[in-house]
Design a protein around this nucleic acid. Structure first.
Lengths: 217, 217
DNA sequence: ATTTTTATCTTGATCAATCAAGATAGGGAG
DNA sequence: CTCCCTATCTTGATTGATCAAGATAAAAAT
């Protein structure tokens, strides 16, 4: 139905709606690295197909149908990422781009095989929830490490935007589920210190900590 | 480099060159279900890129570079098919279309993981050879069952053109490596009879037998 | 040698996705 | 209330892939 270009627009709109409450033409353009004129054109096309409610200059939002389509794309993306990590033994830092391409091409049949093989998982390698076939998502409650005070925490999610960060975290063993102690927060210097039993303590910049989401334990 | 459309043209040209000695504009058009005008246009583009040697109205053939590109696409296609059968447990009758899409999208990194996981295989699920990274292929000597006389044979390759036939063969256990006896050839009626120890005998039309390649044992 | 056939080529048009450049509307500044 | 800024929109052009219809050349038939 939707072309892969359209799928990418839908995914971006969903992302922006979750991130900032609403998606604006300019933000979509920035995220997809396109000019706003191009985005405007596509908004008409998506509106035509009933995938978004669009009132020129007033705003736009995903229709129920559009939201479901977007969630299916997200589902494909995250299942593929998990498959690449679990089955193909790729690193969590290198699966995003691959999934970005595969998500538009994989058949429902193959996707279901992956899903089955992985035991109908609910979360991808970065801790993001995998929508089920009906588009339902299990919400993860977590707060950015950057906002936390000294105490004990568990990593529940890491933003997959920066593969450099993912690589570093992986190397340091700070993966999903990992428990640690936030032993020092030096806000002035913008540095957090992390400790784990039997490991050297780690220093982490606030920038990076923004991307790591944890729950208290 | 080449778009996936171009990759499909290259693959088709390679296929026709192997099949009939040379690829003609009209045959490419038939195989890809396009008009010959469209193909002519693409011939200019491929020629421009040095992927084929093209003399309008006189003929065309893959250049060395084009042949290597085509072989890489074939390699991707066949490795993916084998992966889908061996790892994802899909049936050999349903992997062709999936591979057709995936072959243009999968990264070299992921492809190599598959290759490694499968133990650097040399043949796909239909018995077709998988070109190596340099484009070298291990040729399989085999003759169509349709041309054979009464005797003992082993299945070494099956054309993957008809998924119906593949399904039927699979159901009857006539898979790659299977040994059997051609017990009767009734050319007039266009029917062959096949026997295997402890199995009921099978009747196979010449049409179908054309697609099954065997070696004498 | 002339005609006919048929494959191949060319041309003009279309569709999706895009950009650059210029037009416009709506919200805030004065 | 008027002006201006900025986000959004419109327009005209481009690129890749395609088709339909008509032109042409090479081969085959007479």
């Amino acid at each position: 139905m939707a072309t892969s270009t359209e799928e990418n627009y839908l995914k971006t709109i969903l992302h922006l709606e979750e991130e900032k409450g609403a998606a604006k033409v300019g933000d979509i353009a920035t995220e997809l690295q396109l000019t706003s004129g191009t985005v405007t054109t596509m908004m008409h096309a998506l509106s035509e197909q009933g995938l978004i409610d669009y009132a020129p200059r007033k705003g736009l939002k995903l229709s129920e149908e559009g939201r479901l389509s977007a969630l299916q794309v997200v589902r494909r993306h995250r299942l593929i990422e998990l498959f690449l990590v679990e089955v193909m033994n790729l690193d969590w830092s290198e699966v995003h781009d691959e999934a970005e391409d595969l998500e538009h091409v994989i058949s429902d049949r193959l996707l279901d095989r992956m899903d089955e093989m992985l035991g109908r998982p609910t979360h991808d390698p970065h801790g993001d929830p995998i929508p089920d076939r009906e588009g339902k998502v299990t919400v993860v409650v977590s707060t950015s490490l950057a906002k936390m005070e000294v105490g004990s925490y568990r990593v529940v999610r890491v933003s997959d935007e920066s593969s450099d960060l993912l690589e570093w975290l992986n190397q340091k063993g700070l993966t999903i589920g990992q428990e640690f102690e936030l032993s020092r927060e030096d806000r002035a210097a913008g540095i957090l210190e992390i400790r784990r039993a039997g490991e050297e303590s780690l220093q982490l910049g606030l920038e990076a900590a923004e991307q790591v989401f944890v729950e208290a334990i």
